[in-house]
């Protein structure tokens, strides 16, 4: 709707490589098909018709970590499960992101005891924390939108630009 219409079919659009890479990464992010506890049910809810995660290009959950970019840790991580979570994270190919969904994944939630890892960030690096017990689907979607915004700010060397505050 600009120069190309006025000057005819140029076949060229100028942009930066960074923008194109980030645009493609954030618009086809495939989450790992991975649920742990209660939050996984709300995650299923956000994929179903009422909330429809496919609006964000995220309806394809990959069961194999090799094909996934995003791990949504949905639920409490027990001490027995923690090595499995780390292994799955290691198997995912770079670049990869993690959303800690719910209070248990973020900090242990109501379970401050011997069995539960007090936050999945003890095991894997977390990009976005979503609060709630369990978070509503809207909250998860907001977390995903936040993550997309973070991916948009990535530099090609992997570092992240600070968000512009107005």
């Amino acid at each position: 709707m600009g120069l190309e219409q006025k000057a005819g079919d140029l076949g060229i659009v100028t942009t930066s490589l960074e923008t194109v890479v980030n645009w493609s990464r954030s618009n086809a992010m495939w989450p790992l098909l991975f649920g742990l506890a209660c939050c996984a049910i709300e995650m299923m809810g956000s994929q179903s018709a009422n909330y429809d995660l496919s609006r964000f290009g995220m309806e394809i959950n990959r069961a194999s970590p090799r094909q996934a970019d995003l791990m949504i840790v949905a639920g409490r991580v027990s001490r027995k499960m923690a090595p499995v979570v780390r292994r799955l994270y290691d198997q995912m190919s770079d670049p990869k992101w993690v959303i800690a969904m719910g209070d248990c994944a973020a900090c242990g939630g109501v379970f401050n005891n011997y069995a539960i890892v007090q936050g999945v960030d003890e095991v894997v690096p977390v990009d976005v924390y979503v609060a709630g017990c369990p978070p509503r689907p809207e909250a998860l979607i907001d977390g995903i939108v936040q993550l997309h915004a973070k991916v948009q700010r990535m530099k090609l060397d992997g570092s992240i630009r600070q968000p512009v505050r107005v």
Partner: peptide, 9 residues
């Protein structure tokens, strides 16, 4: 794999 210690808590 999801042992939460609910009864003990």
């Amino acid at each position: 794999y999801l042992h939460t210690g609910i009864e003990k808590s």
